[in-house]
């Protein structure tokens, strides 16, 4: 069955304790795997300050993951996430060829720098 590459970022309710976070993260991972997907990378940003309050909370636990999954899996995963009220918000993106090249570049670490910071790291002006 054809699998596409997806990225999902979701925000968890910050008032939970540590093991509840990892439990929720594994809950989402299991959800994806049960529906025929496979996780490529999970990257947790931890508790971050939100730019604006989401249902009375000013911080949230961010989790960002990349995975391959068949198209039907997405609706099921999102429905289950919607039911769970500890997941405040989620955003799923399907990666097309352009975004995939960006992802590989990010993996290799030589992203084109738009604004070189004050510390003059070597400006790699490669246009891919």
């Amino acid at each position: 069955m054809k699998k596409d590459f997806y990225e999902m970022t979701y925000i968890l309710n910050p008032v939970l304790d540590e093991e509840k976070f990892s439990e929720l993260v594994s809950f989402v991972n299991k959800l994806i795997e049960n529906n025929g997907g496979d996780i490529v990378e999970v990257d947790e940003w931890g508790v971050k300050k939100l730019a604006y309050d989401i249902d009375k909370k000013s911080t949230g636990y961010y989790v960002n993951l990349y995975f391959n999954a068949p198209a039907e899996a997405i609706a099921v995963v999102e429905r289950n996430m919607r039911i769970n009220d500890d997941i405040m918000r989620y955003l799923t993106l399907k990666y097309d060829a352009k975004m995939l090249r960006y992802y590989d570049l990010k993996k290799k670490g030589d992203l084109p720098v738009v604004f070189e910071e004050v510390e003059s790291e070597s400006e790699t002006e490669d246009d891919n």
């Binding site: 970022t9 352009k98 960006y102 738009v114």
Partner: peptide, 10 residues
């Protein structure tokens, strides 16, 4: 100028 192909929301 920087040769960016995709602007990521992150």
């Amino acid at each position: 100028k920087a040769g960016v192909e995709y602007i990521d929301y992150k």
